[in-house]
Structures are given as C-alpha cells and as structure tokens.
Design a protein around this nucleic acid. Sequence first.
DNA 1: GTCGATGTTTAGCCCATGCTAAATTTGCGG
DNA 2: CCGCAAATTTAGCATGGGCTAAACATCGAC
Lengths: 143, 143
Amino acid sequence: MVKSHDHSQSHRRVRADHATELAEDYVEAIDDICRESGSCRAVDLARRFGVSNVTVTRTVSRLVRDGYAQTEPYGPIELTPKGKRVAEHARARHQIVYRFLLSLGVSEKTASVDSEGIEHHVSRETLHAMQRFIDHTARPSDG
Amino acid sequence: MVKSHDHSQSHRRVRADHATELAEDYVEAIDDICRESGSCRAVDLARRFGVSNVTVTRTVSRLVRDGYAQTEPYGPIELTPKGKRVAEHARARHQIVYRFLLSLGVSEKTASVDSEGIEHHVSRETLHAMQRFIDHTARPSDG
DNA sequence: GTCGATGTTTAGCCCATGCTAAATTTGCGG
DNA sequence: CCGCAAATTTAGCATGGGCTAAACATCGAC
Ligand SMILES: [Mn+2]
Ligand SMILES: [Mn+2]
Ligand SMILES: [Mn+2]
Ligand SMILES: [Mn+2]
C-alpha cells in the first residue's frame, strides 16, 4: 500500500514537473532539429509536437521570456546557453528512461511513447536505479 | 537513440494522459478517503492534494459534469459507478508502478512520489512488463 | 435556541496551452 | 522585378487548473 504518506508532497512534485515539462521537451526538440537540419523553424516544431504553428510561436515566446531561447522576427529559433544546458540534461535523462524501458523488455515503439511522459517524473534516485538496471542487463553476450 | 520520426504521436499521447490525469487522481483519492473515514468532503481533498478548497470544488464539479461523481449542496462527495470503476483501475495501476519502483530498489518515499506522476504515462505493455518484473523479483531464489 | 467555528459556494482574478481566421512577411521561381 | 506560396504573426476564442476574498450554510457547544 502507498501507506499513510503526505500525499500532498507527491502532488506538488507532479505539478512542478508539469510546469517545466513543455520547456524541457521544446529545448530538446529545438536542439535535435538544429543538429539534424542546421536550424529550427516554428513549422518544424509544429510538426514534431503535432500542434498548430500558433501554439508553437506562443510556447517559444515563453521560452524566450524565460531565457531558454532567442529569435528574431521571421527568423529561426535558437537556444541560449541556458537552453542548451537544459536540452543536454533533458536528452540524457530521456535516453536513460528510453533505454531502461527497452531493457525491461518493451517494444521500441512503446518505449518511445511511454518515455516521453515518464521522463519528467523520474527523480534522481529513480534515474540512478534505472541506469544501474540498464548496466546490469546489458550482457556482453548480446548481439 | 529515440529512433526517428513521428514524435508527434508520443506527444499526443502525453497530452491525452494529462487530460485524464487529475480525474484519475481525484476518483482514487475520493475512494481512498471514503474507505478511510466513511465519507469524503472537499476539505479532505484539499488537504490531500495541497490545493485550495476552491480548486477542489471546481475540479469536483468537472468530475460531476463528466459523470464520475455526484454531490448535493454542502454534502459529501460520492463516486458514481463509472467513477468507482475508474478509481479501481487507477488504484491497481498505481500500485503496480509503486511496487515496481520498490522492486527496482528505490526508497519508499521516492517510489511514492515518483509513482504519482509516472502512473499516468504507463501503457498496457509497460504495465505488464512492470508486473512481470515484480513477480520475478519477489521470489528470493530466482532462476 | 443562539453563536461561532468550520466548511462550502460564489465572484473574480491569473497563467498555460490548445485552436481558427486573417493579416503580414519572406523568399523563390519565372 | 513580381507575384505567389509558405511561413510567421496577430487577434480572438476556449478550457483546465491554480489563487484570494467574501458571502453563505451547517452543526456542535453552550
Ligand atoms: Mn517529454
Ligand atoms: Mn505527466
Ligand atoms: Mn494515483
Ligand atoms: Mn497520479
């Protein structure tokens, strides 16, 4: 049983996770797209997230407001140093969760989809446990 | 790498998960509190979630609107049959995620906090993998 | 039976995140 | 150089989910 804990602490954490989630996913995506194609446009993010270009524009404006990205009118979207750091961190964490799910035995498709949500709720402690599991499971006798 | 393409499917799934998340947590909490103390009041939920009583009232009104709960003015909050079904399902899933994290080796506190967010992003396939892991880990002399 | 503490509701506010429609800008092919 | 297509921006809308303040209802102590 989830014994008589202070549930409110857990729910506060979940709300905090959600408050930073979209920023993390966006900077990760911006970094990905810049690597793949040299620069990132709003239309690229709209396709990536499956939302309208207007939604992207406004989300990016929050990233700019919060110091994660910068843009010029009608120009590409670029990350600030702060944005790049967050992107690196988010990517590393996402990778661990993804590979952990694969190690657990789920399909690539499912690992890809589930990790997109799970990654934001994994504490340091759990992330380390996942990393240990990956290391432990990665047998040399694997193809 | 988080294999190529169609990230949009993953993000749509995450958005869908979040759209049902609060309802799931509320019906689970209402069910819990009813079991513990016989009936559930707004003030109990406010304490549980760490939000104001007004936020609870409005969230519960959405639950009523969507057929998960019913209330009378100044009365307790009760689940409909539909609400009870969702609560059972949410509790079972939450339990598996919680016990899975314990099996992975994280502390009770961390398992409690992390499972509160993770539970909503776990697909059927991943849930089954977690259950298998629990079962496999539970026996002391594994094969 | 009254009263005050406690709980609930109402009114009004905020921000994030989704949308469509329309205006504007850019950049390219001809 | 021009005009069109694609991209971006602006305007306006919706819902969810958080808040405080203040009005209102309920209920147990006295
Ligand atoms: Mn994500
Ligand atoms: Mn989430
Ligand atoms: Mn739950
Ligand atoms: Mn939850």
